[in-house]
């Protein structure tokens, strides 16, 4: 564990808490993509199957359980409790355009052709693009609530911090996982446009709106 990985995990946790808080406090999931959230639940489910087979540490197990539980909690709030507020008209990104190619790629490019490893690879690839429906939704509506933009900033920062963690681990531990690194870089690049808008608008106290 190094400082980049720890702050990355904290940013990830913070993002999830921010999203749950937004939905709970406003009693609304308006502006949140249910498709991105469904894919995140799928990401955590397929990646953390190793909870059953491998024990790494109490920290690792606890975080995994929190991530899985919170992702299903978010789905419960979005699709059951506050279903009436779900903005499905703007959530039109086609999930199969991501899930199908990602599933194909995880069969073709992986570290080992075994069920658990293919599912892990699938989760890494899917996570890298799972935010696209959310970003697409913002581009359609042209704006995001400030709390939603904080959520996205924390969520994007998490993988960016993981990249620093991988650089650190490469130099100091000789650790290098090509699949995670490439997918993590793709994931971070997808946020760059959002990061720019967030820093130039939200940090100056304005609402996140897209240029016309």
């Amino acid at each position: 564990m190094n400082v980049f990985r720890l702050t990355g995990d904290i940013a990830h946790l913070l993002a999830i808490i921010l999203l749950l808080m937004k939905i709970w406090k406003t009693r609304s999931c308006a502006g949140v993509s249910g498709k991105s959230q469904m894919m995140f639940a799928l990401v955590f489910t397929t990646r953390y199957l190793d909870l059953i087979t491998n024990f790494i540490s109490l920290y690792n197990t606890t975080m995994k359980m929190i991530f899985i539980a919170s992702s299903y909690g978010t789905l419960y709030l979005m699709f059951l409790k506050f279903r009436a507020t779900y903005d499905s008209n703007h959530d039109t990104f086609r999930m199969e355009f991501l899930v199908v190619p990602v599933a194909g790629l995880s069969f073709l490019v992986n570290h080992d052709f075994s069920p658990l490893e293919i599912l892990w690879t699938f989760s890494i690839y899917l996570e890298s693009v799972a935010i696209l429906p959310q970003l697409f939704m913002i581009s359609k509506t042209g704006e995001a609530e400030t709390i939603t933009s904080h959520y996205l900033f924390a969520l994007g920062s998490y993988r960016a911090l993981y990249i620093l963690n991988w650089v650190y681990r490469f130099y100091f531990e000789g650790f290098f996982d090509l699949i995670a690194v490439v997918a993590g870089c793709v994931q971070t690049v997808l946020y760059c446009d959002f990061f720019y808008l967030y820093i130039t608008k939200v940090w100056k106290g304005k609402k996140l709106t897209l240029p016309a």
């Binding site: 990985r5 995990d9 990830h12 990646r47 190793d50 087979t53 491998n54 790494i56 690792n60 975080m63 995994k64 991530f67 570290h111 080992d112 075994s114 658990l116 490893e117 892990w120 993981y162 963690n165 995670a180």
Partner: peptide, 10 residues
């Protein structure tokens, strides 16, 4: 060489 599962990150 046998594959060793070692995903210790989240």
């Amino acid at each position: 060489e046998e594959f060793e599962y070692d995903h210790d990150e989240l």
